[in-house]
Design a protein around this nucleic acid. Structure first.
Lengths: 231, 231
DNA sequence: GTCTATAATATGATAGAC
DNA sequence: GTCTATCATATTATAGAC
């Protein structure tokens, strides 16, 4: 696949076509389980119940399809996060509560999206594959996601002014890692907990993560006894 | 590639051959940057400076090469972790110090390995790809890695008897996520910190992670002031 | 717009000379 | 043991009928 991948010659033919949509959904489902290279346009077309030619017609190329797939996922997710963040700005409560709310805004949307009926169990591995092995333009898009975290960075800086930017950057990085662990490596989590996890309890999972990020998981005997300095 | 992948007909010809070794190193280097499917046996052979036929001769198949690659990495890493864990058993100090030491034993080996001159910057993405898209037998091996964490699970249970197994499982899961974040998504970390990270400072990075796991990153104003209950 | 058929290419595995 | 040459197959993209 040449870097200068062929785009649709004129314009994308029709932006909201039946087959276009059914192709996108089939592709997303397939990419969740197998690699980008392992699933061919034939597989996608077959799963969608249309012909192979239609892929090149609607998206110009296989890479074009992948891009379209990301185009409709990533922005929607970011928007949801930002909406929740704006809620925080209006929130009454201790600084402590507000930090929690920011973390919630960061974590909850991904997790909830991951449980949507149409993408359940498919969404996250798909994104992981994209990030790792997707076509160049897609990987670029993924990187932009980090830039979109700026509002969170700034909200937290205001709430934790004692931290310099490097320090805060590290913690945000760790926070994203914990967020990530809620939707990936789920088999590991099941093994470690003896299968006692219900992935449908989104709120409970988010709470767990936020709690861990706030107080850590190994430094206290009993959380209730821990005399954290209230902010 | 059929599931019942062809193994070397007789036995693996010679276990310590010059070309065998050079092939393994070339493959690992290539798989670090591109997908398992994207890098062909021709690429590997060329990078190793040998012929394509030698791959099938020494490993039976492409999958066989991948397995051999994992075979020489995974056990070595586990061993290093367990050695460090045994050190903890003999350690004098507060329970608090001992928990830290367990986390250190969990995290440090991977990070140090990742900086070894011969695998620098290659090691972790390679493992990530393997976990995600490697051949079936390799993915099985990767899953066994979780089972190998049992000693850590038990060491922590002794040190934190107030936690039940489910609770501890969750925290171990988060701990592994933080560990993972030290070697993956490094670009994100660079962006978030404004480039102020020196990946050669292994000890400093481990300390950061352990600290975060112990106390969290968002729940206190100033760590020095935080009156954690000493164990 | 959607299909089928085909082209052009890349891959993993193998055969056989040396 | 290592090479080169070849096989059988799978891939994406395209051409052209309808």
């Amino acid at each position: 696949m040449i870097e200068e991948a062929r785009r649709p010659r004129g314009r994308p033919p029709s932006d909201n076509c039946e087959t276009r949509e059914v192709l996108l959904e089939a592709a997303q489902r397939l990419f969740a389980h197998r690699n980008f290279m392992q699933v061919g346009i034939r597989d996608i077309a077959e799963a969608a119940g249309v012909s192979v030619g239609s892929i090149n017609y609607h998206f110009g190329s296989k890479d074009g399809l992948l891009e379209a797939l990301c185009d409709r996922i990533t922005p929607a997710l970011l928007e949801e996060r930002l909406i929740q963040l704006q809620w925080v700005q209006r929130l009454e409560g201790t600084r402590y509560d507000r930090i929690k709310a920011v973390l919630h805004a960061l974590i909850e949307p991904v997790l909830r999206w991951n449980r949507r009926p149409e993408t359940r169990m498919f969404f996250t591995p798909f994104l992981a594959r994209m990030r790792l092995d997707g076509p160049a333009r897609v990987r670029e898009m993924m990187k932009m996601e980090v830039a979109s975290l700026r509002p969170f960075h700034e909200a937290l800086r205001e709430l934790m002014p004692h931290l310099n930017d490097v320090e805060l950057g590290w913690r945000l990085h760790f926070a994203l890692a914990v967020e990530h662990s809620l939707t990936s490596e789920t088999e590991r989590l099941m093994t470690l907990t003896g299968g006692e996890v219900d992935f449908d309890e989104v709120d409970r999972m988010v709470e767990r993560a936020v709690d861990f990020l706030m107080y850590g998981g190994f430094g206290e005997v009993d959380r209730a006894e821990t005399p954290f300095k209230k902010l």
